[in-house]
C-alpha cells in the first residue's frame, strides 16, 4: 500500500477559493491531517468491499488498510484504516462508515488517549563487506530480527510505529535495500476494556 498521500485535484480556475457549492467543497487543501480509524465489523461476505467502496465512491484517501477476523464466535473483524483529509472530511468518514449496516463501531485511534499503533515490515537488504555489517548493526538498534540470510543478503523483520519503519527503511537504502513488504497499521486501545 502506497505511503504517499494521493494528490488532490487543484481548485478549478474561475471558482472562488471558499466553497461556493457542495460540488466545490473538497477542493481545499488546507489542514489535511492523517488519522487512524479502527472499525469493528460483522465478518460477513463483502464487508471489506463495502468499506473500500465507500472510500472510493466518496473520494476519500486510504493510506493503509489491514483487516482480519478478531473473534470467530462473534463473527467480528477489525479493519484499521489510515486515512487523511481535513477535519471536516475525517468527521464525515467516521459517520459514513457508521452508516454501513455491518459496521458496529468506529474508533478514532489517533485522537483517543489510549490508541496504540504498530506496523510490521519485512525488509530485504543485499550487500557484502562493511555495508553488510553496518546493516546488521543498525538492525540491532531497531530491534529487528534476521529471519533469513544468504551470503549476500538479509531479510529483517521490524515492528513498530510507521515512522520507525520509515526510518529503518531509509537507513537501509544506502546499504543495499532491495525491497520492502509492510502490513499496514494495526491498532488497539490501552487498558482493560474491549473495543467491540
Amino acid at each position: 500500500m502506497t505511503r504517499a498521500t494521493r494528490t488532490r485535484a487543484p481548485a478549478k480556475t474561475g471558482v472562488r477559493e471558499d466553497p461556493a457549492s457542495a460540488y466545490d467543497m473538497t477542493a481545499s487543501d488546507e489542514g489535511i491531517e492523517q488519522r487512524t480509524l479502527a472499525c469493528i465489523v460483522d465478518n460477513e461476505p463483502g464487508v471489506l468491499a463495502r468499506v473500500v467502496g465507500l472510500f472510493s465512491a466518496r473520494g476519500y484517501n486510504i493510506e493503509s488498510l489491514t483487516v482480519a477476523e478478531i473473534d470467530r464466535n462473534a463473527h467480528q473483524s477489525r479493519i484499521t484504516i489510515v486515512t487523511s483529509g481535513t477535519n471536516h472530511v475525517l468527521e464525515q468518514i467516521e459517520q459514513q462508515l457508521l452508516r454501513l449496516v455491518p459496521v458496529a463501531k468506529v474508533i478514532d485511534v489517533s485522537n483517543s488517549s489510549g490508541g496504540i499503533e504498530r506496523e510490521l515490515a519485512l525488509v530485504k537488504v543485499a550487500g557484502k563487506g562493511d555495508a553488510r555489517v553496518e546493516s546488521l548493526r543498525i538492525s540491532e538498534i531497531f530491534r529487528a530480527h534476521v529471519i533469513d540470510t544468504t551470503n549476500e543478503s538479509f531479510i529483517f523483520e521490524v515492528t513498530g510505529a510507521s515512522q520507525k519503519i520509515d526510518q529503518f527503511v531509509e537507513l537501509m537504502r544506502p546499504l543495499g535495500l532491495v525491497e520492502v513488504s509492510r502490513t499496514g497499521v494495526l491498532s488497539i486501545q490501552r487498558g482493560k476494556e474491549k473495543a467491540g
Binding site: 472562488r16 471558499d18 466553497p19 461556493a20 457549492s21 457542495a22 460540488y23 466545490d24 467543497m25
Partner: peptide, 10 residues
Amino acid sequence: DDRVTGRLDA
C-alpha cells in the same frame, strides 16, 4: 442538498 442551499458560503 445543493439544490436547496445554492451558494454554500452565502
